[in-house]
Amino acid sequence: MADKGLRVIDAHFHVWDLSCQNLPWLEGTDGSITCTYDLSDLEAAYAGLPGVDFVGGVYVEVDGDDPALEDRLVWDRMADDPKLLAAMLRTRVEPWMRLPVFAAGVREPLHIDSEPPRRCLEPGFLEGLRVLAAAGLPFESCSRTAELPDALRAFSQVPEETVVLNHLGNVTPDTFDDAWRDVMAGFADLPNLYVKVSGFPTADAGFCRELLGFVRETFRADRLLYASNWPVVSMYGDFAEHFARLREAFGDDGRFFCDNACACYGIDPAALD
Rank of each mutant, 00 (worst) to 15 (best):
E108D: 13
P109L: 15
L110D: 07
H111A: 10
I112A: 08
I112V: 13
D113S: 08
D113L: 07
D113W: 00
D113M: 03
S114K: 07
E115S: 11
P116H: 04
P116M: 07
P117Q: 05
P117D: 15
R118A: 14
R118L: 13
R118C: 03
R119E: 09
R119V: 05
R119T: 04
R119I: 00
C120Y: 00
C120L: 02
L121P: 03
L121N: 04
L121Q: 06
L121D: 05
E122D: 12
P123A: 07
P123C: 10
P123W: 00
G124W: 06
G124D: 14
G124C: 04
G124I: 00
G124Y: 07
F125K: 01
F125T: 02
F125L: 01
F125A: 02
F125M: 04
L126V: 15
L126E: 01
E127P: 01
E127T: 06
E127N: 02
G128C: 05
L129W: 02
R130L: 05
V131Y: 06
V131A: 12
L132K: 08
L132D: 06
A133R: 06
A133D: 10
A133F: 06
A134W: 12
G136M: 08
G136D: 10
L137E: 00
L137M: 14
F139P: 00
F139C: 12
E140W: 01
S141F: 14
S141Q: 05
S141M: 14
S141D: 02
S141Y: 09
C142S: 12
S143T: 12
R144N: 11
R144T: 04
T145G: 11
T145A: 15
A146G: 14
A146I: 07
A146K: 13
E147G: 10
E147V: 03
L148D: 06
L148Y: 06
P149D: 10
P149Y: 10
D150A: 14
D150N: 13
D150L: 03
D150M: 08
A151M: 13
A151D: 04
L152D: 05
L152V: 15
L152Q: 13
L152N: 11
A154K: 06
F155G: 02
F155H: 11
S156K: 13
Q157W: 02
Q157E: 15
Q157A: 15
V158C: 13
V158L: 06
P159L: 06
P159I: 12
P159G: 14
